[in-house]
Amino acid sequence: MQLPAHFEYQRARSVEHALALLSRHGPEARLIAGGHSLIPMMKLRLAQPELLIDINEVPELGGIEITEDEIRIGALVRHTQLLDCAEVGRSAPMLHDAERVIADPLVRNRGTVGGSVCQADPSEDLSGAFSALRAVADIAGPAGERTVPMRGFFHGPYQTAVGPDELLLRLRVPLPAPGLRTGSAYRKVSRRAGDWAVGAAGAAVTLAPDGTVAEVGIGLTALGAREFVATEAEDLLRGQRPTPEAIDAAGRAAAQHCEPVADQRGPVEYKRHLAGELTRRVLRDALARAGGR
């Protein structure tokens, strides 16, 4: 069986404690929560941290809180918790769509929301979903807290705005003003249940009272979209009536502006097609949920 190399282990009791440990041990220290990205990499010895700081028992990092204008999701919230939260399903159904197709129930029992986005795997479903939803990330560091929008959080494959001496506290998903019709949806094409995405897309649509698109977020996963979003497609739709033609145009733009890479999940041509096809479908789903169609 594949096994990790040696490392030291410390359990953090608080955010402050975790940050102190990170500062003291420098970049060779890594945070661990669910461990479902890090431990496999350590087994393959692609990651060989000298110290693991276990944040599973840091109380401030848990919990889902829903206020009038946002959903706050602690970095340590397990995927299953997010999926079990009915209010999240109502306010941001895309998150439930995405969670349902992430790995499998056992992995979701252990894996955390914060861990998923901080891993910044180009195929991470939540990255596409949170980016589409224009979530923001609260990050704690030696200098205190700061907030980074998801569009700006991902600096490249496996690279994020979270510095080596920082930790992600929570993600906050803004909710539209009351009274506005809104809907969101996420779809994924995979070779098999539990597999990483061949391609996936998420859309969040808010309709103005006149039926035009007040705001739209389109996230793309595993399709080589910059920062997981299809901004050109969003720009085409914003302010427009979401007609089939407008949706088709958005799909075309999403396909045109992504840069997928070929792998065993599919060639570039196919993935580019998926970007368009899935963008169209999730826009239609989101509009249906918004009652816009």
Binding site: M1, Q2, G35, H36, I39, P40, L52, T80, L106
Partner: peptide, 25 residues
């Protein structure tokens, strides 16, 4: 090894997890 097959599933605090991807500590 890769937390795919689930042969190692056990309950941790009442919830099944894949014990090949959990450290004993």
């Amino acid at each position: 090894d890769t937390s795919n097959c689930g042969a190692c599933a056990v309950w941790l605090d009442g919830v099944p997890v894949k014990s090949c991807t959990v450290l004993a500590v």
